[in-house]
Design a protein around this nucleic acid. Structure first.
Lengths: 132, 132
DNA sequence: CAGAATCCAGACTGATACTG
DNA sequence: CAGTATCAGTCTGGATTCTG
């Protein structure tokens, strides 16, 4: 369906197989379920570990720790330790993290807006399969 | 979008644990590495199975098939079989898929734009860890 | 409180081979 | 061409236990 004429009208894009490759890894991290939910929370302001743990439904301490580490490693989240007893650790988005939150929130809103469309599409598909 | 009753009381609508919960599953699919790359390709126009297989670097026939099935199940991609010999199957985005492609492309562009920021953040982080 | 460490079942993936 | 089937290795993620 994509004829040879597409090539000349390629003004709007540039393939960049290189870039796409790198994008894959990053999208994997960014599109990760927990990463999105964490970014979504931190977009409202910094939070403590336990606050995040309570705010994000269903996440285990393990996954919260691991995901925060990855986000920190990618420079999206900043970790601030306040040496007290009991210890206090706050997490906040870095400027890079804030810039990410925009497209991520857009995606999250899309997901929420079309949740039912997808659920019903799944339902229809599954029912159609059963009939075979 | 929202019921009229919700608008008055809920204008500042936070949280929505229900919506967020559902969003997680969908984001997982949508944020999937292969899904993104496939949507990205199909955004330019419909393609045949083998064309996708060649266009997307590193994907196996197996993962291409599985991912396309999931996208089809979610109502994002339409599969059209033309019974010939050899067989021909075309894939295209549905209207829902097209609406998804916008936020996905935005995210992909973010990823490409900040690829190096992330790479260097990772590098710094890893080097800081070694010193310990 | 904020993790680190360990265990482990199950999901995910790639490679390979086969089919209509 | 467009898949399906199978198998083995990897990775994931929850549960649990322990520490400064």
């Amino acid at each position: 369906m994509l004829p040879a004429t597409a090539r000349q009208t390629d003004f709007h894009n540039d393939h960049l197989p290189e870039s796409c490759k790198g994008a894959g890894d990053i999208l994997a991290r960014v599109g990760d379920k927990w990463s999105v939910l964490i970014v979504r929370q931190l977009d409202r302001g910094s939070m403590r570990f336990s606050e995040l743990n309570r705010a994000i439904d269903g996440i285990s301490k393990r996954m919260l720790t691991l995901t925060l580490r990855n986000l920190e490693r990618d420079g999206l989240v900043e970790r601030t330790v306040t040496p007290l007893n009991p210890p206090r650790v706050d997490y906040a988005l870095t400027p890079l993290g804030v810039s990410l939150s925009k497209p991520v929130m857009a995606l999250a809103e899309w997901a929420i807006a079309h949740k039912f469309d997808i659920q019903s599409a799944r339902h229809d598909y599954d029912r159609a399969q059963e009939d075979n």
